[in-house]
């Protein structure tokens, strides 16, 4: 990877677009990345998971975690009412305690973007929209681009796209790369600004850690602002090892190109204890530079209430219960 540093920094994809000059060059590059030893990676993640976060550190981490949540509803049964209710929760997670920070974003389907945007107006809480035939990604490029453009036009601040795992697994890396680039272009607004692009790998379907590392670099070179583990719609969603691996990828990518990319584990993160483990991984792998909602997010829904209950416990000394946090 040291050879990468020779590339021009700062450009889109860290100036590494030339590695995607052809299917062959892209494949060579991705397959030239260092391998990942599953047992070693999982062991490191498990060890970090034994960190004991207490008292002041826990209080700091709980608020940080709340501020990093992409509070999510991605159901077929979603309605405007449901989305507005979720937005209210994101703005004031604990109605009894105004010191609780607001969440980072509300994450919805494209047709709910306008509703969410309206509910959050002026708050600073972002609206994130899934797009590109979420969650399977099984649609033609024009449909994916239209899906994206509609969400952006409706006011989405962030686009959570999915890659075509079938294309990736069958080795059509360039196709995946070009799709991300095209979606990135579709994120542009008429005023020249751009919605932030999160690229979802669905790591549970990529199966191997080597694939996750390759997908991470592929997406970052193609211009991803964030790399995200999962849709939350398959059997295996975010795990600590897979997130650790992606943290290592963004670390190495910045070292090579100067471009900083964010990471978003999503799906299956439900408890404060889990969230602490993720934050410990960020802290010890990436340090302060990524310890902010700009660079790290949790894609979650039920996590928020557990964080709130733990927060209440810390401030009152009593254990809280589900009736003391709101259901939205």
């Amino acid at each position: 990877m040291s050879t990468l540093a020779a590339n021009a920094p700062g450009a889109a994809g860290g100036g590494l677009s030339d590695v995607a000059a052809s299917e062959a060059t892209l494949r060579r590059f991705l397959h030239g990345l260092p391998g990942v030893d599953q047992v070693g990676l999982e062991s490191r993640a498990a060890t970090l998971g034994t960190r004991s976060i207490k008292t002041t550190a826990k209080a700091f981490a709980i608020d940080l975690a709340i501020s990093m949540i992409d509070l999510t509803t991605l159901e077929g049964a979603d309605t405007a009412g449901k989305v507005r209710s979720l937005c209210a929760k994101g703005l004031h997670p604990d109605p009894t305690d105004r010191s609780v920070p607001q969440v980072a974003a509300i994450c919805v389907y494209p047709d709910m973007v306008a509703t969410a945007k309206e509910a959050l107006r002026g708050s600073g809480v972002q609206v994130a929209s899934v797009a590109t035939a979420f969650p399977s990604g099984r649609a033609g490029l024009p449909v994916k681009l239209a899906d994206t453009a509609e969400a952006v036009a409706a006011g989405a601040d962030e686009i959570d796209m999915v890659i075509d795992r079938g294309a990736f697994l069958s080795g059509r890396y360039l196709e995946v790369f070009e799709t991300i680039k095209a979606v990135k272009a579709a994120c542009e607004r008429p005023d020249g600004t751009s919605a932030h692009l999160k690229v979802i790998f669905e790591t549970g379907e990529l199966q191997t850690y080597d694939n996750v590392r390759r997908a991470s670099w592929l997406a970052m070179i193609a211009g991803a602002d964030f790399i995200k583990t999962s849709t939350g719609k398959v059997a295996v969603n975010a795990t600590q090892p897979v997130t650790l691996l992606m943290l290592e990828a963004v670390r190495d990518f910045r070292a090579a190109t100067g471009v900083q990319v964010g990471v978003k584990p999503a799906g299956g993160i439900r408890t404060t204890k889990d969230a602490m483990k993720y934050l410990v991984m960020v802290n010890e792998t990436l340090g302060d530079d990524w310890l902010s909602p700009h660079w790290f997010r949790f894609g979650a829904s039920s996590l928020l209430n557990d964080l709130l209950m733990q927060r209440q416990k810390l401030s009152t000394g009593r254990y809280s219960g589900p009736d003391y946090v709101t259901v939205d």
Binding site: A57, R254, Q260, L286, D288, D289, S292, H294
Partner: peptide
């Protein structure tokens, strides 16, 4: 915890965390 996106640079090494200090 807020930081702007401009605070990045080529080859910038990550720093051991000081924001998130573990209590004893």
């Amino acid at each position: 915890t807020k930081k702007t996106e401009t605070e990045t640079g080529t080859g910038q090494p990550v720093r051991a965390g000081s924001l998130f200090a573990y209590a004893p």
